[in-house]
Design a protein around this nucleic acid. Structure first.
Length: 452
RNA sequence: GCGAAUAUGGUGAAGUGGUUAACACGCCAGAUUGUGGCUCUGGUAUGCGUGGGUUCGAUCCCCACUAUUCGCCCCA
């Protein structure tokens, strides 16, 4: 037997319905915020990620899916979404588009060559947004609010936004120097990793779990004291807009987001969920005013966010959140014997073309077994075809909720089903507004019910 | 890269160094309900991860491998 690859999953059944629900929710929220869907390739030139992420990191050296294709090109399966989107932005000259800023979202699979564990797979699905072409702090706040609203709408409680700023390059360089100077005399007291981080990526030391409680760390200089006026103002405004948007956050100076290209605002959203362990970060992002240039474009400010949907699903499961997944079909067509099967075939087709979801039996099962099957599928109506009825141009139809059973004229069946299903859904005849609050309207206008 | 646990039929899962490996669910057929959902009867399953070893004999003991899960590292 051939098994699926390590760290990959087959998603089907109820699980697949949940994924679809989340994807639909994402589409609907992004539409409201006016972020447009973009789909970029799953593989790109390796260089894109090497440049975007930084040559020296573990990420690049051992956690990317690199390979050579038959033309001897260096290819990488995308490990994240931002680089590809930025590449597409530059390549398609979106900076010249008349609508600015460019606001995009993606939702797709990413690949990371890692040892899988809970909340971490080799093939993962990420949703993310990128807003390019504005340095307005209002946009930073919007990005965060979109992310938070997704979590809210899913129904997650204990969501915490950790917020920090890295300032602009000038502020960050000053801070980096001060930090190195401060830590260097004490470096012997830090863990091995931190000792190498000191030169390579000193900010990362702040994020170290081992040395987190070290007194020296606690008294370390803070980035906020090294911000220049411009950076300080940006951060203050981001916070102002978050307050206006009613987004709660915690300032957390240890959020540094490893990568060089981050500027100003950085944030992580974490879930306070029992049994979530070290994989409690649901998503994160920040401003990256240097990346577009780094990847060969012009100087374009940008801000973005990404979340792992696998982890979101895990959180939903742990929190025991019931997503409103619709189950069941409208009708199951059963036939008493082989004689009626031909008619069943055409009836099923007709009903489906008229917009009903309909199933029938394909295993030539006994009528009894067909009833069982119809029941298992949560069919609203059972349509039972027998010879005698068909001769008189009518069919037997049973409402599985009320148990009411009727014989209906063949010509009348579509109208009958339509009516009856409306009644089942609580949709009244008088209502044609499409938004009266009944169940039927809800399904058609789901997005209008979203309460921000 | 390091560490730990697990590996039995379609599913969940018990169990033993020795003739036919429980039980439950599922599925199928039948009985009974005016044709399903409850109940009862019967049927169903190429099942002990792979390769070695110990043994008269291994699913059960030992070793290796593989896979899965979980943790560490790292985290885009």
């Amino acid at each position: 037997m051939i098994n699926r690859q390590k760290g990959c999953h087959d998603i089907y059944g109820l699980e697949a319905k949940k994924w679809q629900y989340i994807s639909n929710l994402i589409d609907s929220v992004c539409q409201k915020y006016h972020y447009e869907y973009i789909r970029t390739p799953i593989f790109e030139a390796s260089e894109l990620y090497h440049r975007g992420i930084g040559e020296q990191t573990d990420i690049v050296t051992k956690e990317m899916y690199d390979f050579k294709d038959k033309g001897d090109r260096n290819i990488t399966l995308r490990p994240e979404g931002t680089a590809g989107v930025v590449r597409a932005y530059i390549e398609n000259k979106m900076y010249g588009d008349s609508n600015q800023p460019i606001k995009l979202y993606y939702n797709g699979t990413m690949y990371r060559y890692e040892r899988p564990q809970s909340g971490r797979d080799r093939e993962l699905t990420q949703f993310g947004i990128e807003a390019l072409g504005s340095e307005d702090p209002m946009l930073d706040a919007e990005v965060i609010s979109l992310a938070v609203n997704i979590y809210r709408l899913v129904g997650l409680k204990g969501i915490k936004v950790n917020l920090n700023t890295l300032g602009d390059k000038e502020s960050r360089d000053r801070y980096r120097e001060a930090l190195i100077e401060y830590i260097r005399p004490h470096i012997g007291e830090f863990c091995e990793d931190c000792q190498t981080r000191l030169e390579k990526n000193p900010l990362r030391i702040l994020d170290c779990k081992i040395d987190h409680d070290n007194e020296i760390m606690k008294k370390a200089p803070k980035i906020t004291d090294y911000l220049n006026e411009k950076s300080k103002k940006h951060f203050q405004e981001v916070k102002k807009y978050l307050d206006l948007l009613d987004i709660e956050y915690v300032e957390n100076p240890s959020i540094v987001r490893g990568l060089d290209y981050y500027d100003h605002t950085v944030f992580e959203i974490e879930a306070d969920i029992e049994g979530f362990g070290s994989q409690n970060v649901l998503g994160g992002g920040g401003r990256y005013n240097n990346l577009v240039k780094e990847l060969g474009g012009m100087e374009v400010p940008a801000v973005g966010f990404a979340m792992g949907l696998g982890r979101l699903m895990l959180a939903i499961e742990k929190e025991n959140i019931q997503l409103p997944i619709e189950e069941g079909i409208d009708a199951f067509v059963m036939y008493v014997s082989e004689t009626e099967k031909d008619y069943a075939t055409t009836l099923v087709q007709e009903l489906r073309m008229s917009g009903f979801s309909v199933e029938t039996d394909y295993l030539n099962r006994s009528l009894k077994a067909q009833f069982k099957q119809a029941d298992r599928l949560h069919s609203k109506f059972f349509i039972i075809l027998n010879d005698e009825d068909l001769k008189e141009n009518r069919i037997q139809i049973k409402n599985n909720q009320t148990k009411k059973e009727e014989k209906v004229e063949l010509d009348y069946i579509l109208y009958y089903l339509d009516e009856e299903i409306s009644i089942l859904d609580g949709h009244s005849d008088e209502c044609d507004c499409g938004d009266c609050g009944c169940d039927h309207c809800h399904t058609d206008h789901e997005e209008d019910d979203i309460d921000f």
